[in-house]
Nucleic acid binder design. Structure first.
Length: 813
RNA sequence: GCGGAUGUGGCGAAAUUGGCAGACGCGCUGGAUUUAGGUUCCAGUUCCCGCAAGGGAGUGUAGGUUCAAGUCCUAUCAUCCGCACCA
C-alpha cells in the first residue's frame, strides 16, 4: 500500500471523537487484578493548562498506560483545587462572580485535558469548591475540634493594609504584600483557628523512615529541616528580686557556667513588667525594624533592661538584655548567651562589651584565653571552670546537668520543634466556611454535623476593600446558636485552601459518598498511593499537610495507612528558551497552542524526550519539530508496509534483535528510573534501522515489528499508537493490550566486539564469540595490523581483560 | 553563612556497575527529489593537523588514585535550588 501522510489533525480528531464516551479509563471496583494508584497533583483552575502541566500529566499518563498494559487495575484520577484568592481577584477586576469564573475555567481546562487524551477516570473528578466536597473539610474540622486538634488563639499574623486582609506566609514577598510590593506587611494579633500539626511532629519525623527510598531525599531533608526537632534543656533564671522567672531553652546546658547574660526577644511578654515606657518603645521599634527583612542583613542590636537574673547552677548574677536576634517564635523566646561557645552570642557580646568566659576546652587542647579571643569555640569538648561538672565531656554533662535541673525543680530536658501549628483562618470569601457559631451566651459553638455543609453564599459583592466579604451577608452571618437557640453570629473566616488539597486523593476513591468523606473499605483497597507525581515546590506545605491529615484520619479510625504515598516523584520545571516562564514575560507556552501546532502526541512526547523527567526542560519549538518528524516517519513506514510484502528476510535477525533490545530498555526503564528521553531515543534508533533495512525484512518479521512498535508507542503517543493499531487490523484500545515481553535470546548480539587498547588508548576492535578466553584474544590482538605499530620495540608489562568487552595491553619502552 | 544538586559539541542531551566519550534529537553543510520554496530521503557534522589514510587533544579548573576516570578522592570556580540569627 502507498504510504499515507501523517495528518495529525485528522488522526487525533478521529480518535478524540471515538473516545468521547470511552469507558476504558475507569478503575474497576472489584477486581482480581493487583491495584495501582497513580496520581498527579491537581491543578489550580487558572483557566489554561501550560506546558508544565503537560509535562506532569504526560509522565503520569505514560506510567498509567504502562501499568494497565502490565495487567494492573489502575486508578488515575484528576480534579480541581478550585478555591483560592485568584478567583476573588478576578471578581474584583472583571466583575465576574468567583464561582462562575472558576467553573468556566474548569470547563476550558477540561477541554484541553481531553484534547491531550490523558487517561483519567473522569467519573471520579473532584472539584474542591463544591459543597459535596468542602462539607467534608468542615466535617474533618469538627472532628479535630472534638479531639483538641483544632483550637482558637490570638496570634500574630501577616497583615496587608491595602488588601485589608491576612496574608499567608507564602504571600509575603521580601517583607511586602505580593500584590503591593510597596506595602510592608504588618504583624497583627488576631483570633485565629489553628490545627495542631505539632501534635504529630514526632510522628511526621519518625515515619519518614517509611518513605526513605520512595521519596526524593531532597524532599525528606526539606521536611526534616522544616520540622526542626532539637533536643536540649529548659532552665529557669530567677529574677534578682521578685517576678516570674525567665525560662530559656538551650541545646548546650553544658556551657551554662559561661552564660554571661540572659536575652529576651523584644516581644517577650515579660517585657511588659520588666521595662519602663521608654525601653518598651525601643523594644517595639526593634520588632518593627526586623519585620519581613532578610535576617542575613540585620545587624545584631540589643539593650540592657536594667535588671539581673540568677544562674541556677552557679548562683551568678547576670544582666538581662533584649535583642533583635532572639526570636519569640522559637523555644521559649529567651536565651542564655554563652559568647565563648556560640557564634551569635559572641558577635553580640563583643559589640556590647559583655563578659566572655570560656568553659569548654577542645578534647585535645587548652581552654581559650580571654581577653584575646577572636572567635568562639562552638564544638563539643570538655567542661571546665564549672564547679562539680568540670572535667566531664560535653555530651555527658548535657545529660547529667539536665537531670539535675529536673531534680532541683528549676528546669528539665526538653525537645523543641521549629514547626508551628497550622493557622487556617483566612479573612476571605472564596474558601470553605469554618463551621462554628459565636454566641454571646455559649461562646464558640461548633455547627452540628447534621447541619453540614455550611454553604458558602453565592450572592455576594466583592470589592477588595474593607472586612471579610462574608461579614456583609446578613443571611449568612446571622444564625441561631445550636446550643441555646438565641441569635448568634456565624464565623466569617474561611479555611486555608491547603485544607482542600490535604485529602483530595482519598475522595477520588469514593467521590460520590454522601454519608462519609469516603468508605474506609475503599481506602483500604486503594491506599497507599503507589506513585504521586508533582512539582518540588510543594515539598513542604502540601506534602507535609497531607501527611498530617493522613495521621489524623488514621487516629479518627477512618483509615489504617500511616502515610498517603509510598512513592513520590518530583519532576523538573519547564522553562522557555532559557528563561523561566511567567505571565509577565508573556512567554508561557500554552497547551492549546501546542496541540494546534503539532498535535497532542508530539507535545507530550517532546516534553518527555527533551530531558529526563526529574530535570529542568528547556522548551524550544524547533526541538518539537524533531518529534513531529519522527512520528510522521513512523506513520509513513507503517502504512506503506501494510500489508507486509514478502522480501528477502536478510535483515530479520538484525531487526528483531534491535526490536527486542528496544523493548527490554523501555520495560526496564518503566520499572526503575523513568528515563523516557532515552526510551524514545531507542525507539528512534529502531525506526532508523527499519528505514535502512526496509527492503530486506520478511513479511513475518515486518508484521511482528509493526505490532510491537504500536504497543511500545502506546504510553507515549496514544493517538498514533491507536491509529497504527487499527491500520494493523486490530480492534479495541491499544493501551489495554498486554505489554509485549522481550526475548532475551533474540536481544542478544551474535558475538562480542572487543576493544583493543594499548596503554589505555583504543587502537582496534576485534570480534570473537562470547566467552573467548584471554590467550586467544591476546594472540588475535597482537597479530592485529592496527595494533602492531604501537607494540614495536616495546615490552609488554601486562594484559588486562574485561570479558567480552575490552583488552588493554600495557607496554613500556 | 549552612546544606544539597549540577557543570560534557553551536544547542537539548546520552554514557544505568571505573572499561569505546558525544547515542538520539535540534541546528548546520552537502547531495537526491522538486520549476522554486517547503516537505521527504541519503550522507556528513567535538576540536586541532591532514587531500586522505591517520594522528593528537578533549567531559568547568588544578592535582591525585588506577592498566583504565565524565564516573572515585582532594582542592577550587561557576550556576541553580533549599534553609537561614532555630539558641
Amino acid at each position: 500500500m502507498p504510504e499515507k501522510p501523517y495528518d495529525h489533525i485528522q488522526l487525533e480528531l478521529k480518535w478524540h471523537e471515538r473516545w468521547e464516551n470511552a469507558t476504558f479509563y475507569k478503575a474497576e471496583e472489584n477486581s482480581a487484578k493487583p491495584k495501582f494508584y497513580v496520581l498527579e497533583m491537581l491543578p489550580y483552575p487558572s483557566g489554561t493548562l501550560h506546558i508544565g502541566h503537560i509535562r506532569n500529566y504526560s509522565i503520569g499518563d505514560a506510567l498509567a498506560r504502562y501499568k494497565w498494559m502490565r495487567g494492573f487495575n489502575v486508578l488515575h484520577p484528576m480534579g480541581w483545587d478550585a478555591f483560592g484568592l485568584p478567583a476573588e481577584n478576578a471578581a474584583i477586576a472583571n466583575k465576574v462572580p468567583p464561582r462562575q469564573w472558576t467553573v468556566q475555567n474548569i470547563a476550558a481546562m477540561k477541554k484541553t485535558h481531553r484534547r491531550f487524551a490523558f487517561s483519567y477516570d473522569w467519573d471520579r473528578e473532584v472539584s474542591t469548591c463544591e459543597p459535596e466536597y468542602y462539607r467534608w473539610n468542615q466535617w474533618f474540622f469538627l472532628k479535630m475540634l472534638e479531639r483538641g486538634l483544632a483550637y482558637r488563639k490570638r496570634a500574630l499574623v501577616n497583615w496587608c493594609n491595602k488588601c485589608a486582609t491576612v496574608l499567608a506566609n507564602e504571600q509575603v514577598v521580601d517583607g511586602c504584600c505580593w500584590r503591593h510590593d510597596d506595602t510592608p506587611v504588618e504583624q497583627r494579633a488576631l483570633e485565629q483557628w489553628f490545627l495542631k500539626i505539632t501534635h504529630y511532629a514526632d510522628a511526621l519525623l519518625d515515619d519518614m523512615a517509611q518513605l526513605e527510598g520512595g521519596w526524593p531525599e531532597r524532599v525528606l531533608t526539606m521536611q526534616r529541616n522544616w520540622i526542626g526537632r532539637s533536643e536540649g534543656t529548659e532552665v529557669d533564671f530567677h529574677l534578682e528580686g521578685a517576678g516570674t522567672p525567665i525560662r530559656v531553652f538551650t541545646t548546650r546546658v553544658d556551657t551554662i557556667y559561661g552564660a554571661t547574660c540572659v536575652i529576651l526577644a523584644p516581644e517577650h511578654p515579660l517585657n511588659e513588667t520588666l521595662l519602663d515606657p521608654a525601653l518598651k518603645a525601643q523594644a517595639k521599634a526593634m520588632v518593627d525594624g526586623r519585620a519581613g527583612r532578610d535576617p542575613g542583613d540585620i545587624d545584631k542590636e540589643g539593650l540592657f533592661t536594667g535588671h539581673y537574673a540568677i544562674n541556677p547552677y552557679s548562683g551568678e548574677k547576670v544582666p538581662i538584655w533584649i535583642a533583635n536576634f532572639v526570636l519569640m517564635g522559637y523555644g521559649t523566646g529567651a536565651i542564655m548567651a554563652v559568647p565563648a561557645h556560640d557564634e551569635r552570642d559572641f558577635e553580640f557580646c563583643r559589640k556590647y562589651a559583655i563578659t566572655i568566659r570560656p568553659v569548654i576546652r577542645p578534647v585535645d587542647g587548652a581552654l581559650a584565653v580571654e581577653p584575646g579571643m577572636t572567635e568562639c569555640f562552638p564544638d563539643y569538648g570538655v567542661v571546665e571552670n564549672s564547679g562539680e561538672w568540670s572535667g566531664l565531656p560535653s555530651a555527658e554533662a548535657r545529660r547529667k546537668m539536665s537531670a539535675f535541673a529536673e531534680q532541683q525543680g528549676f528546669g528539665k530536658a526538653a525537645i523543641t520543634f521549629r514547626i508551628k501549628d497550622w493557622g487556617i483562618s483566612r479573612q476571605r470569601y472564596w474558601g470553605t466556611p469554618i463551621p462554628v457559631i459565636h454566641c454571646t451566651a455559649c461562646g464558640v459553638v461548633p455547627v452540628p454535623e447534621t447541619q453540614l455543609p455550611v454553604i458558602l453564599p453565592d450572592r455576594i459583592e466583592i470589592t477588595g476593600t474593607g472586612r471579610s466579604p462574608l461579614e456583609n451577608v446578613p443571611e449568612f452571618v446571622n444564625a441561631a446558636c445550636p446550643q441555646c437557640g438565641q441569635p448568634a453570629r456565624r464565623e466569617t473566616d474561611t479555611m486555608d485552601t491547603f485544607m482542600d488539597s490535604s485529602w483530595y486523593f482519598y475522595r477520588y476513591c469514593d467521590p460520590h459518598n454522601s454519608t462519609l468523606p469516603f468508605d474506609p473499605a475503599k481506602i483500604a483497597y486503594w491506599f497507599e498511593i503507589d506513585q504521586y507525581i508533582g512539582g518540588v515546590e510543594h515539598a513542604i506545605l502540601h506534602l507535609i499537610y497531607s501527611r498530617f491529615f493522613t495521621k489524623m484520619m488514621r487516629d479518627i479510625g477512618l483509615i489504617t495507612n500511616n502515610e498517603p504515598a509510598r512513592r513520590l516523584f518530583t519532576q523538573g520545571m519547564v522553562i522557555a528558551e532559557g528563561v523561566k516562564m511567567s505571565k509577565s514575560k508573556g512567554n508561557v507556552v500554552g497547551a492549546d497552542m501546542l496541540a494546534e501546532k503539532f498535535g497532542a502526541d508530539t507535545a507530550r512526547m517532546f516534553v518527555l524526550f527533551a530531558a529526563p523527567p526529574e530535570k529542568e526542560v528547556d522548551w524550544r519549538w524547533e526541538g518539537a519539530e524533531g518529534i513531529y518528524r519522527f512520528l510522521g516517519r513512523v506513520y509513513r513506514f507503517v502504512t506503506r508496509n501494510l500489508p507486509a510484502q514478502e522480501r528477502s528476510g536478510e535483515a530479520d535477525r538484525n531487526v528483531l534483535r534491535k526490536l527486542h533490545q528496544t523493548l527490554r530498555k523501555i520495560t526496564e526503564d518503566f520499572e526503575s528510573r523513568w528515563h523516557f528521553n532515552t526510551c524514545i531515543a531507542s525507539i528512534m534508533e529502531l525506526v532508523n534501522l527499519l528505514y535502512a533495512e526496509e527492503q530486506s525484512i520478511s513479511a513475518t518479521a515486518m508484521a511482528q515489528v509493526l505490532q510491537t512498535l504500536a504497543l511500545m508507542l502506546a504510553p507515549f503517543a496514544p493517538y498514533l499508537a491507536q491509529e497504527i493499531w487499527e491500520e494493523l487490523g486490530h480492534e479495541g484500545p491499544v493501551f489495554r493490550q498486554t505489554w509485549p515481553v522481550f526475548d532475551a535470546d533474540l536481544a542478544k548480539e551474535d558475538g562480542a566486539e572487543i576493544v583493543v587498547q594499548v596503554n589505555g588508548k583504543v587502537r582496534s576492535r576485534i570480534t570473537a564469540p562470547f566467552g573467548t578466553p584471554q590467550p586467544e584474544l591476546q594472540a588475535q590482538a597482537l597479530a592485529d595490523e592496527k595494533v602492531k605499530p604501537f607494540l614495536e620495540g616495546k615490552q609488554i608489562v601486562k594484559v588486562i581483560l574485561v570479558p567480552d568487552k575490552l583488552l588493554n595491553i600495557v607496554v613500556k619502552p
